[in-house]
């Protein structure tokens, strides 16, 4: 349903901005829906929008499904693209905050790089496993102790299907698709990320010590080693209690470490 807006800006003025300025402005619009609307403002604006080759998209899982399925019968064109020259599509899926009042407990990101017939898909998943307290990880989610294929079950979700659909019906120019899936956006005091082995070690260490003992300094150093894939996004070293602990999984074993770290930072950036 289209609502006609009656209250418009009071001042009406003629603007004569040069083309490159308008394009520069539109490139800064981080909302694809706004861009789509801009493209229907006038033919000149439609031409500007068609020059933008990197599209961000923030929507819920359901909305993305609608956009994709709407386009399927027709063409290789996917509906989020207002034109066919898009090179880069970034989709951020999120739950509507007032519906999902639970804390986000996992996040995932699919990153597809397309090079002609070669499609390289990487997957990064992070799961919240507990809260760091003085001496121990509290509220440990029991599933963490379950088999590692649990994580793959988490990511075998609609997100993956959406990626498949986009790849199958992609515009020829498309070179990269990033889908990140974030549930809710609850305020976090801080985050720690580590791999499964590291987390297991930490727990064993903690079990072998007195539960009243605070985290030792060797842990602090160890946690901040980048090769441990453990990050303190908040650099408040004094105040770590209550920070959430996130366990991360990379789908592909062959990932280059640096690439993986960048993905992780990108993925977790969604929570900031």
């Amino acid at each position: 349903m289209i609502t006609v807006r009656s209250r418009l800006i009071k001042e009406h003025y003629k603007l004569d901005l040069p083309d490159e300025i308008i394009l520069a402005i539109l490139e800064k619009v981080q909302d694809t829906e706004t861009l789509v609307r801009c493209s229907s403002a006038s033919k000149r604006f439609q031409a500007f929008v068609s020059k933008i080759d990197s599209l961000p998209l923030i929507c819920t899982q359901g909305e993305l499904s609608i956009m994709l399925s709407a386009a399927l019968p027709h063409s290789i064109r996917i509906s989020p693209c207002p034109h066919e020259d898009v090179k880069c599509l970034e989709v951020k899926l999120c739950s509507v905050p007032n519906i999902a009042r639970c804390r986000a407990n996992h996040a995932s990101m699919f990153n597809a790089k397309i090079d002609d017939d070669q499609i390289d898909v990487r997957r990064t998943v992070a799961i919240q496993v507990g809260v760091l307290t003085r001496g121990f990880i509290s509220k440990l989610i029991p599933i963490f102790l379950a088999k590692s294929n649990y994580y793959f079950r988490i990511s075998q979700n609609e997100t993956e299907l959406c990626l498949d659909k986009i790849l199958l019906h992609r515009p020829k120019t498309l070179r990269s698709v990033v889908i990140s899936c974030v549930k809710d956006s609850y305020p976090f005091r801080g985050k720690v990320f580590m791999s499964r082995v590291q987390l297991a070690n930490l727990m064993l260490d903690q079990l072998s010590k007195s539960s009243h003992q605070p985290l030792g300094s060797q842990h602090e150093d160890w946690l901040e080693e980048p090769e441990n894939a453990a990050y303190w996004l908040k650099k408040q070293h004094r105040d770590r209690e209550g920070e959430t602990l996130w366990h991360i999984v990379y789908e592909s074993e062959s990932l280059h470490k640096l690439t993986a770290e960048r993905d992780l930072k990108e993925l977790m950036g969604d929570f900031d």
Binding site: I9, Y13, K14, L15, I22, C38, S40, A41, R44, F45
Partner: peptide
């Protein structure tokens, strides 16, 4: 769309 048109005087 109307807002955008007004904003840019399109």
């Amino acid at each position: 769309v109307e807002y955008v048109r007004n904003f840019f005087g399109i």
